[in-house]
Simulated assay, not measured.
Amino acid sequence: MSHTAHIPSHRKPRRSASKLAVRAGVAGGVLSTLAMAGTASASPSAEPVAETTLEMPVLDLDLGTEVSTAVTTAAENTRLAAVEAAVEGELNALEESARTGAAAEAKKAKEDATKAAEAKAKQEADRKAAAERAGRSAERETLTNASASNGGSGSTAKGSGSSLGSGTVTAPATGSASAAINFARNQIGKAYVLGATGPSAYDCSGLVQAAYRQLGISLDRTSQDQSLAGRSVSLSNLQPGDILYWGAKGSAYHVAIYSGGGKFIGAQNPRTGIVERQMSYDMPTGAVRVL
């Protein structure tokens, strides 16, 4: 026996080959993994990083632009719709205002036209009245001058008969007042001519003289003398056929024939000619009766 046999050996016991192989494989795998990790850390690949960093912002930018464009378009459409609604409302208001204004203008124009027509009618009536007054004044002046040139006396009637004032009835009355009235009415529409005694034109006393001639009554020619013929009667007691006069008795400037019903027939003036009118149109001063 060796003298060193009792000393324990310090060498590790040998491992089996299979265990060593497994350990070597594991160690190799670990070292390979570490090597690959180290390589990745030390030399990073630019291509994957470039793909991640470049492509994602581009996608985000396009999406943001589309969203922004959509929002802008929607806002613009909303604004345009609001403007269109406002314009439509304003147009409707203008149309309504135009219709209202046109109706008001038409109403005012109608009122103005009515007032103008009424004013014109009044002016025409005033003008007619003034023309009639002027015509009568001219006739009165002419008759006054003629009377003055004759010494102021009435003309003598032809033939013999009873004297009634300065007018003289030279023949007995025949027929009725209707004959005189019908004659005068048949002359309506003929012209008034100062000094005319018919048959196409008359003045006021010429018409009265011609009408009473139908009854066989001869009257003096002038309105002054005719206002003195017969007997005076009140205007409230008139009978058809009475002679109406305007102006003072004996110096009347106009005469006509009472036709009944509050009307008279007379040769008024150059503008109207011979007409039949209500006495209220121009009330006479007095009346005389020769029948």
Score class of each variant (00 low, 15 high):
Gln268Glu: 15
Lys263Gly: 03
Leu235Trp: 05
Gln268Cys: 02
Gly241Trp: 00
Asn237Ala: 15
Val255Ser: 13
Gly247Glu: 10
Ala267Glu: 03
Ile243Asn: 03
Ser236Phe: 00
Val233His: 08
Ser234Pro: 06
Gly261Glu: 05
Leu244Ile: 13
Gly241Val: 10
Gly266Cys: 05
Ile243Val: 12
Leu235Thr: 14
Gly241Glu: 00
Ile265Lys: 01
Lys249Gln: 15
Asn237Gly: 13
Gln239Ser: 14
Leu235Met: 12
Tyr258Thr: 13
Ala252Val: 15
Ser232Ala: 13
Gly260Asp: 06
Gln268Ser: 07
Gly261Gln: 05
Phe264Ile: 12
Tyr245Ala: 10
Gln268Val: 13
Gly266Trp: 12
Ala252Phe: 08
Ile265Tyr: 01
Lys263Trp: 00
Ala256His: 09
Asn237Lys: 08
Gly241Arg: 09
Ala248Gln: 11
Lys249Arg: 15
Ile243Ser: 11
Gly241Asn: 09
Lys249His: 01
Gly247Asp: 10
Gln239Glu: 15
Asp242Val: 01
Tyr245Trp: 13
Gly247Ile: 06
Gly250Glu: 07
Gln268Tyr: 07
Gly260Ser: 10
Lys263His: 12
Leu244His: 06
Pro240Asn: 07
Ser236Asp: 14
Tyr253Thr: 10
Trp246Arg: 07
Tyr253Leu: 02
Pro240Arg: 08
Leu235His: 08
Ala252Leu: 06
Tyr245Thr: 07
Val255Tyr: 10
Asp242Asn: 02
Ala248Thr: 15
Ala248Cys: 12
Asp242Tyr: 00
Ser232Glu: 11
Ser251Pro: 08
Gly261Tyr: 04
Leu235Asp: 12
Asp242Trp: 00
Tyr258Gln: 11
Gln268Pro: 01
Ala256Arg: 04
Ala252Pro: 08
Gly247Thr: 12
Ser259Gln: 03
Gly247Ala: 14
Gln268Gly: 01
Ser251Ala: 12
Gln239Phe: 05
Leu238His: 06
Gly250Asn: 05
Leu244Pro: 08
Val255Lys: 07
Pro240Glu: 00
Ser251Val: 09
Val255Asn: 11
Ser259Thr: 11
Gly261Ala: 06
Pro240Ile: 10
Gln268Lys: 00
Ile243Gln: 10
Ser251Cys: 14
Ile243Arg: 04
Ser234Phe: 00
Gln239Tyr: 05
Gly260Asn: 09
Lys263Tyr: 13
Leu235Gly: 13
Val233Lys: 01
Leu235Phe: 02
Ser259Cys: 08
Tyr258Lys: 03
Gly266Leu: 14
Ile257Arg: 07
Tyr245Val: 02
Ser232Asn: 11
Ala256Tyr: 02
Pro240Cys: 01
Ala256Phe: 15
Ser259Asp: 06
Leu238Ser: 08
Val255Asp: 06
Gly266Asn: 13
Phe264Trp: 03
Gly262Val: 14
Ser234Trp: 07
Phe264Asp: 15
Leu244Asn: 04
Tyr245Asp: 13
Tyr245Met: 08
Asn237Trp: 04
Gly250Met: 11
Phe264His: 15
Ser234Arg: 03
Tyr253Glu: 10
Lys249Pro: 12
Leu244Phe: 04
Ile243Asp: 03
Ser259Ile: 04
Ala252His: 04
Tyr245Phe: 14
Phe264Tyr: 13
Tyr253Cys: 04
Leu238Asp: 15
Ala256Pro: 08
Val255His: 09
Tyr258Glu: 09
Ser251Arg: 05
Leu244Gly: 12
Ile257Glu: 00
Val233Trp: 01
Trp246Ile: 07
Ser234Lys: 01
Ile243Tyr: 12
Ala267Asn: 07
Pro240Ala: 10
Ala256Asp: 12
Ser251Lys: 11
Ile265Thr: 11
Gly261Trp: 00
Val233Glu: 02
Ile265Val: 12
Leu238Asn: 06
Ile265Phe: 06
